[in-house]
């Protein structure tokens, strides 16, 4: 019998090692797996490379992971959301490295990484500073830049519903990067507000098939960044 459930967020992230590359789902607070991130802070791994669209707000979730100085590099499209001060402070102090990637290129690099495509050409960013130093080639009379797929050691994502086989559904715009990130890591860890037995989800509606998921953690009432920030919370 296949059962990918693990007992706690702590258990789920226990083997994340120093220097690991970790993909973290979310666009702003939508889809941010806060409980898994907080468990990673407790766990203590350092020197991480984090792949995520943003860098968190306030002093919780992704921002708290950065503030604890566990992250040496972020691969990111938009690191300066309103209410984010942790990343800007670290970046200006030269304490964190940034690889800035256009959002669609970031999505496609993760998709490619998970799909066994080592690199691809895109017209995005041609003629801009973000294409400097990259190989380029003309197709159909138009310049394209070569971008490489990204793989990670671990992916942390948030679903609204998962089953014991690791099939996942998402809530509205919380889906964002999670389906690609699930495919691109050696170990994919999902926190889900509801976990059901295999067979309880409509197979036609499944967004992330369980083959991409290794661990499922039941987090019944996931915290939201905005609510924690309004309450003035900080983690740990």
């Amino acid at each position: 019998m296949i059962d990918k459930r693990v007992g706690s967020a702590r258990e789920a992230v226990a083997d994340i090692f120093d220097g690991a590359t970790v993909m973290i789902g979310g666009f702003g607070e939508a889809g941010s797996p806060i409980e898994l991130i907080h468990a990673l802070i407790d766990q203590g791994a350092r020197g991480l490379t984090v792949v995520s669209n943003n860098t968190g707000t306030g002093l919780v979730g992704l921002a708290a992971l950065l503030r604890a100085e566990r992250v040496s590099k972020v691969i990111c499209s938009f690191p300066k959301t309103a209410g984010s001060t942790v990343f800007p402070d670290l970046y200006r102090a030269g304490r964190i490295e940034l690889e800035l990637v256009p959002q669609g290129t970031l999505a496609e690099r993760i998709r490619a990484g998970g799909a066994g495509i080592v690199a691809f050409y895109t017209p995005t960013a041609v003629g801009t500073p973000l294409a400097e130093g990259k190989e380029s080639r003309v197709f159909n009379n138009r310049e394209h830049v070569l971008e490489y797929g990204i793989r990670a050691d671990f992916t942390l994502i948030k679903g609204c519903k998962a089953d014991t086989h690791g099939n996942v559904l998402y809530h509205r715009t919380a889906r964002n990067f999670a389906p690609m990130m699930a495919t691109a890591a050696t170990v994919t860890i999902v926190q889900a507000a509801e976990v059901v037995e295999a067979g309880a989800l409509d197979p036609e509606a499944i967004v992330t098939p369980g083959i991409f998921v290794d661990r499922v953690v039941h987090v019944p009432s996931p915290a939201l960044e905005s609510a924690l920030n309004e309450a003035g919370a900080s983690y740990p």
């Binding site: 300066k80 800007p88 800035l100 256009p102 959002q103 017209p123 995005t124 041609v126 973000l130």
Partner: peptide, 25 residues
């Protein structure tokens, strides 16, 4: 040509989001 994501100032935090993909596609 369009410039709409950065003034290139030294202390600016670079952030691009989807703008480059939108204008390319």
């Amino acid at each position: 040509d369009l410039a709409n994501w950065s003034t290139g100032a030294d202390d600016a935090i670079p952030a691009v989001g989807g703008a480059m993909d939108l204008v390319a596609g």
